[in-house]
Design a protein around this nucleic acid. Structure first.
Length: 412
DNA sequence: TAGGCCATCTGGTCCT
DNA sequence: AGGACCAGATGGCCTA
């Protein structure tokens, strides 16, 4: 059988395994091919030596694999097994050789390494190369994972007990960056005076196509749909839209942009970004083909939830307490909002509809205290106050826009 | 139990 | 020659 001395498999130098990989020297190798050309591995832990990784290595090997390893000493069988190793990567077409390229002055590849080497020596070299390559590959993947971890950390939320998958992290980052960039750009336009109050038609066909595709809304698509470059709407005077609601449709006058005394509201295809200069920001997402609401936003204690999240621990609302609690105590991103936010983007990206649940109760809200109607729009003080207060509660606009309930949203 | 996610091994390819 | 990168294969863990 094979040697149990690690040095026999690592006879070049200690640099074979890097020091910073977080792993001890590992050894799992493919020595031969079975009858069906499946690469064979074996675990040297059975040999009484500790060569298996000590952390995060879950790979275990089976006895039947070991049984297929050729007997030690039969170098010809061993070598032919190596040569017969199956390759999983399809071969690519080789580039034509450059006739002007000077020839190498020495033998290369297998011929060179084979020179003056016995088969057993050759196998040692091959194994050590493989070990080094495996170690490098592990380190490379670890660095990639570390980069993903750093990306997770800079996303707006990262609950302690929840971890985005790799693909979720990338998708979430893409959407988040886009939403923020659009917000910044719009704010710049306001500050520079490029945006002037005016109406313009929206390209509903392109908006629909863009929304149905489930693709991420790219900048060009955004401009094409909304012609946002120098057209938007100015501040409304009647307070109708002071509530920071998310829309998947243009606002009442056809614009996708709205500025109020409390911030700005921007429609970006599937995503609405609200930047509130007092009470926090909001990102809302819809599929464009229907609306949906995270069930949790329909719970009876919504009032208390919003009250707590937006206005800290204050129990009553008035203009004074609003200002007083506009400080660091406010919890802008919590577990609940993270899930809603993530779900919103996920649904928008995949064009999925949320299944209705028993928690949907349309009638309950039609005449609710927070229901939105034309009277409210025209300035009923009490209702307006509530609408303003529940700026991330989409229910109150359902009737006004005659749309199905509703959207998912999140406060950031 | 199937499917998703992940870590790891592996050989091929490209480049220095 | 050797390193980086890639993609296929594999098996473990977890969850619905």
């Amino acid at each position: 059988m094979f040697s149990t001395n690690f040095d026999d498999y690592c006879d070049f130098n200690d640099s074979i395994c890097s020091n910073d990989s977080g792993f001890e020297k590992s050894y799992t190798d493919s020595f031969a091919a079975s009858n069906n050309n499946t690469p064979i591995k074996f675990d040297t832990s059975d040999l009484g030596i500790s060569l298996t990784p000590t952390k995060d290595v879950r790979r275990k090997l089976f006895k039947e694999d070991i049984d297929n390893i050729p007997e030690h000493g039969d170098d010809k069988v061993f070598e032919s097994s190596i040569l017969a190793m199956n390759t999983s990567t399809p071969k690519k077409e080789k580039k034509p050789k450059d006739p002007n390229k000077p020839k190498k002055k020495y033998a290369s590849g297998k011929n060179r390494i084979s020179r003056c080497k016995s088969p057993s020596q050759l196998m040692k070299i091959q194994r050590n190369r493989r070990m080094k390559a495996n170690d490098r590959e592990r380190n490379r993947m670890h660095m990639l994972n570390e980069a993903l971890d750093r990306l997770r950390c800079v996303l707006p939320t990262f609950p302690e007990d929840t971890k985005l998958t790799k693909i979720e992290t990338l998708r979430f980052a893409h959407n988040y960056i886009f939403a923020l960039s659009q917000t910044l750009e719009s704010l710049d336009n306001i500050n520079s005076g490029q945006i002037q109050p005016q109406e313009y038609p929206i390209n509903n066909e392109k908006l629909q196509n863009c929304s149905l595709s489930g693709d991420k809304i790219a900048k060009d698509a955004f401009r094409e749909i909304f012609s946002i470059s120098n057209k938007t709407e100015g501040v409304l005077n009647d307070g109708t839209y002071r509530s920071f609601q998310g829309y998947s449709r243009p606002f009442a006058n056809g614009s996708n942009f709205m500025q109020t005394s409390e911030g700005v509201l921007i429609n970006v295809g599937n995503v609405t970004v609200s930047v509130n200069n007092k009470g926090g920001n909001c990102i809302t997402s819809t599929t464009g083909t229907g609306f949906f609401t995270h069930p949790s936003t329909f719970s009876e204690d919504l009032h208390q939830q919003n009250y707590y999240y937006q206005y800290s621990k204050s129990n009553t609302y008035n203009e004074n307490s609003y200002e007083e609690n506009n400080g660091a105590e406010r919890e802008y991103f919590n577990q609940k909002n993270y899930e809603i936010f993530k779900n919103a983007f996920d649904i928008a990206a995949n064009n999925k509809k949320l299944e209705k649940t028993e928690e949907y109760n349309y009638e309950r809200f039609n005449n609710s205290l927070y229901g939105y109607n034309e009277v409210n729009c025209n300035g009923n003080a009490n209702e307006y106050l509530h609408n303003n207060y529940y700026y991330n509660d989409q229910r109150c606009y359902r009737n006004f826009y005659n749309r199905a309930p509703n959207v998912v949203n999140a406060q950031i």
